[in-house]
Design a protein around this nucleic acid. Structure first.
Length: 667
RNA sequence: UGGCCUAUGGUGUAACUGGCAACACAUUGGUUUUUGGUACCAAAGAGUCUAGGUUCGAUCCCUAGUGGGCCAACCA
């Protein structure tokens, strides 16, 4: 047992506490309950990671349950895709289950609820029902059918089930409290009539249970101990518990465990969106090529992009679990995939943006096959041979006729190493009529022991194979594209998120097959795309290498148009208080800055805002100074002196703190 | 008649339930290097939204305020 007690997240704390309070460890059971109405994305991975992770940690079963209660939206295709994605992530579920498996049980329990006077058939239009529900700030009112007799309810409900009514004619509602402050408790719907074909139950049913009536009861039937979901379901918990407790009365013997719902904050990733609906729009409008487009945050997209299951699982671990809204920086995801691929991806050489390099002192008909290490991080990966000849390609960006000493690459008159080969010296360039460089001439030396600053990758023109390379940039140019109330996320689409180039890669790649991952040395990690054929290789750029050289160059990229706009609009007085609190701890220069800021903010402060601060505790000098400064501005702007003000000032004048005294005197 | 959740460096998560705020990413230096990668070392960056209270002591407990989020689908 390791003494390294990793700190627990709040859910693990809850479980540990339950265990201490007598819950038997073998009663632990979790579930992941997707609705099969779309593809899984990186956001779901968090939920998957939490529940399946807990299963692994406590050696407890985790069910995969498809929440398939809305036949209008759900399809077998999605079921298959979801299973494939979860498997790919490397998780194993204990049971594959469907909410639709419980339709009969749910129906029987609903009848019991009706018999207990806890549910009734409502026959109004959905508009009328919505109307009566009230609003968050206004209580609802009871509808005319609320007190139907049990017999009538039973009869109607059975006829609903038998298909005697059309969609919308009747619904079944729980009878709770139309005045409840939580709107979900205002007689929520339990069943609606839906004459649709269900992907599993076919036409067996024409009434379908709603989420709230299904979900908790499914948890209960499966004897889930901890039902974990995202924060937006928090308000549902009261209802979850209400249903659960009633049903418990009907089945407590066979089903003794009452599940607990707990909620965590969902994952948000910068520069992307997580909503299934919005992702669907990207697919439908052709912004991307499909759900598995490598730019999509879907699991299938990430897989195609070259992400490994491991990297995604590590990412989820690092993201943590809590209850506050969060936006995770994509750089963390990128770190995770680099970390993984660095250890596992074979290195190869590929030139994406070529310029011809002629080694003038190398014989024209000569070729050599040089030894190249496959992975410096993994000696067991061995080595391969790469062909060298007189005419090569190197990257355009790796040559400049002249450059400062900070440029470690090839320039005229100085030396550089060709990876796995010789040291060369730039001699002269050949240009076309427009002044573009068409050839670089150099000479080589066989002394490879020499110390040179730079090392370049290259390919032999004669031996290189052509390949299509797809480079991706973020899909959106805004950090949080769907969080603007005034702008649609579609406005932030990056028009240059895909760049396709024709590249030259070393011949060892001839046999690369779909899904293989490589590091193109000095460039990044790439994998072979599904579109590749033996004749036509296609690579996706998974992620670039870290590039501390690129950072040195001025890069008019995304960072520029980042005016820190979401700067919170806190009231001036709040900001002043915060500045004040820290004031006395600051060095003088910062204090001046802080003071100037307070004085500026003070213009927007009213006397009513400021007055309560006169009572600030004596020991909170900083706040009193800030108050004093603000008061000064107010007085200057015509605020009349009164008893409170005078008292505050004279108390300050007697203070031990010189700063405070100074400011008080200034008034 | 509104209810509920939430607030810790740029980002995210911790702080063993009250004892000088830590870890990761990002940032900036440096060392090593046949990848301007990796690895390693170092630095900077929050005094925990505000006010009041309890306490010898508060990120943690209490009260109030402020900011942010969720809730009014016959969706899940």
């Amino acid at each position: 047992m390791s003494e390294e007690t990793k700190s627990l997240n709040f859910i693990e704390h809850i479980i540990e506490e339950d265990l201490e309070n007598g819950l038997s460890k073998d009663k632990l059971r979790f579930r992941f309950p997707p609705e099969p109405n779309g593809y899984l994305h990186i956001g779901h991975t968090k939920a998957i990671g939490i529940s399946f992770g807990l299963g692994e940690k406590y050696n407890a079963p985790v069910n995969l349950r498809f929440d398939d209660t809305n036949p209008a939206k759900e399809e077998q295709e999605y079921v298959d895709a979801i299973k494939r994605d979860i498997k790919w992530l490397g998780y194993e579920w204990a049971n594959e289950l469907y909410s639709s498996d419980y339709f009969q049980t749910l129906y029987d329990w609903a009848i019991q609820l009706i018999k207990d006077g806890k549910a009734y058939v409502d026959s109004q239009s959905s508009e009328a029902i919505a109307e009566q529900k009230g609003t968050p700030t206004q209580p609802g009112i009871e509808g005319p059918y609320r007190n139907r007799s049990i017999e009538e309810n039973l009869d109607l409900f059975e006829r609903m089930k038998n298909g005697e009514f059309d969609e919308g004619e009747h619904i079944l509602r729980a009878k709770i409290d139309m005045q409840h402050p939580n709107m979900l408790m205002r007689d929520p719907l339990m069943y609606r009539i839906l004459k649709k074909h269900h992907h599993r139950t076919g036409n067996d049913w024409c009434i379908y249970p709603m989420y709230d009536w299904t979900h908790g009861e499914s948890d209960y039937i499966e004897q889930i101990s901890h039902s974990l979901c995202s924060l937006e379901f928090k308000p549902h918990r009261a209802l979850y518990d209400w249903f659960k407790e009633h049903v418990y009365g009907y089945a407590s013997k066979e089903l003794p465990m009452l599940p607990k719902q707990r909620e965590f904050a969902r994952l948000n990733l910068s520069y992307t969106i997580m909503s299934k609906r919005k992702l669907l729009k990207l697919v439908e409008e052709g912004v991307v090529s499909g759900w598995d487009d490598p730019r999509m945050p879907t699991i299938s997209g990430l897989r195609r992009r070259g992400y490994t299951p491991n990297s995604i699982r590590h990412f989820i671990e690092r993201v943590g679990v809590a209850k506050r809204e969060n936006v995770i920086d994509v750089s963390l995801l990128e770190f995770c995939i680099r970390e993984d691929l660095n250890k596992t991806a074979p290195r190869v050489m590929a030139v994406l943006d070529p310029v011809k390099l002629v080694v003038t002192n190398y014989p024209e008909d000569k070729e050599e096959w040089l030894e190249a290490e496959n992975n410096p991080e993994d000696v067991s990966a061995g080595s391969r041979k790469v062909p060298f000849s007189r005419e090569l390609y190197i990257e355009k960006a790796d040559f400049k006729e002249e450059a400062s000493s900070k440029f470690f690459r090839l320039k005229l008159g100085s030396e550089v190493r060709l990876k796995n080969a010789y040291i060369i010296k730039g001699e002269r360039v050949i240009k076309d009529a427009d002044g573009n460089i068409t050839e670089i001439h150099c000479t080589y030396s066989t002394d490879t022991e020499k110390k040179v600053k730079g090392t370049l990758h290259w390919v032999s023109i004669k031996h290189a194979i052509k390949a299509e390379v797809r480079e991706y940039d973020r899909l959106f140019m805004d950090e949080a594209p769907d969080s603007h109330q005034d702008k649609d996320y579609m406005e932030f689409i990056n028009p240059n998120s895909l760049k396709t180039t024709e590249a030259y890669v070393e011949p060892s790649l001839t046999n690369a097959s779909i899904g293989d991952r490589f590091q193109f040395q000095r460039i990044g990690y790439f994998n072979v795309d599904n579109d590749a054929t033996p004749e036509h290789l296609v690579f996706n750029k998974t992620v670039g290498l870290r590039d501390s050289w690129a950072k040195q160059k001025p890069k008019p990229q995304h960072n520029q148009n980042k005016p820190k706009q979401p700067q919170q609009q806190r009231p001036a007085i709040e900001v002043i208080k915060q500045l004040g609190k820290k004031y006395t701890n600051l060095p003088e220069a910062k204090q001046e800055k802080s003071k100037a800021e307070i004085l500026k903010l003070a213009e927007n402060v009213s006397y009513e805002d400021l007055q309560p601060l006169f009572n600030t505790a004596a020991k909170k000098v900083g706040t009193r100074i800030a108050t004093m400064l603000t008061l000064g501005v107010l007085l200057k702007n015509g605020q009349e002196r009164n008893g409170d003000i005078e008292a505050f000032i004279s108390k300050a004048l007697e203070d031990k703190n010189e700063l405070l005294v100074t400011e008080a005197k200034a008034i």
